[in-house]
């Protein structure tokens, strides 16, 4: 059995073990399902009420993905701007930190005021959550490009655009993908926050409704759906990352003498 295979099996065993321990804990301690439902209970709820959960899940997925894609576009453009020179990087950085440290929950009421409750605030909250890691990472990737690599291009009389396209952006790719994996989970957080505060659709809204009727298993089912969506999207981007930036993760291959 290969090493990576073993690691995958161990990860799976850890997850299954976690649920088994949870189940056992509730069973032995006679924990009421109003406090902490058993995983088996949550799964049955999930399956039984899937038709009701599905539209909410799709809504959350939709707002998250739209916010995330807009975040990528805006993040890459801003990142290119900020990372284009050392000066721009130093000048823009404090303001970026300022913006990114505002708790996004506090922004939702303003967004609702502007765009009314529903899909638009959810998309914008997702966007505002996920855009900063992308900007910072793309900018860092560009700003830390080795000057020697740029010299190679400059003595070929390459234009700024040539250098950006052939050296800067490929060089920033590992940074970009690292930020995507962080950003996609943040985008979910943004969507769900906004849905909890002001929406009549989405997993966040579902959780609020379930909470007001003490439907604890349904709340946990909502959490499971979110976790599943998050993991699935993370996996997709990891896969793309491996394809695109394999050169930056070459740990085990030894160079030839």
């Amino acid at each position: 059995m290969s090493d990576s295979m073993k690691r995958h099996l161990a990860s799976a065993a850890l997850i299954i073990g976690f649920f088994l321990a949870w189940e056992a804990f509730c069973w032995i301690g006679h924990v009421s399902s109003f406090v902490l439902p058993r995983p088996s209970e949550i799964f049955t709820t999930l399956v039984k009420r899937l038709p009701a959960i599905m539209p909410h899940a799709l809504q959350t997925l939709y707002t998250t993905m739209v916010g995330f894609l807009l975040g990528i576009v805006l993040g890459v453009l801003m990142g290119m701007l900020v990372g284009s020179s050392r000066l721009a990087y130093d000048v823009a950085y404090p303001m970026l930190i300022g913006f990114s440290s505002i708790p996004k929950v506090a922004v939702v009421p303003i967004l609702v005021l502007w765009f009314s409750a529903g899909t638009v605030p959810a998309i914008l909250t997702a966007l505002s959550m996920c855009v900063f890691p992308i900007i910072v990472n793309v900018a860092t990737g560009l700003a830390t490009t080795e000057p020697e690599l740029e010299d190679v291009m400059r003595c070929l009389r390459a234009s700024k655009l040539d250098i950006l396209w052939n050296v800067g952006l490929p060089r920033a790719m590992p940074y970009f993908f690292a930020s995507l994996k962080v950003s996609i989970t943040l985008a979910f957080v943004g969507s769900v926050i906004s849905e909890t505060v002001a929406s009549n659709r989405g997993i966040g809204n579902l959780m609020m409704i379930a909470s007001s009727s003490f439907d604890v298993p349904l709340m946990f089912a909502g959490l499971f759906v979110l976790a599943f969506l998050g993991v699935a999207l993370y996996a997709i981007f990891s896969l793309i990352e491996g394809r695109v930036t394999g050169w930056a993760h070459r740990g085990t291959d030894l160079p030839m003498g």
């Binding site: 080795e146 020697e148 690599l149 010299d151 190679v152 003595c155 070929l156 009389r157 052939n166 050296v167 490929p170 060089r171 790719m173 930036t245 050169w247 930056a248």
Partner: peptide, 13 residues
């Protein structure tokens, strides 16, 4: 102009 430096400076990707 062609130029070679002390470091090979090949693009790793």
């Amino acid at each position: 102009v062609g130029m070679a430096f002390q470091n090979p400076t090949l693009l790793p990707w």
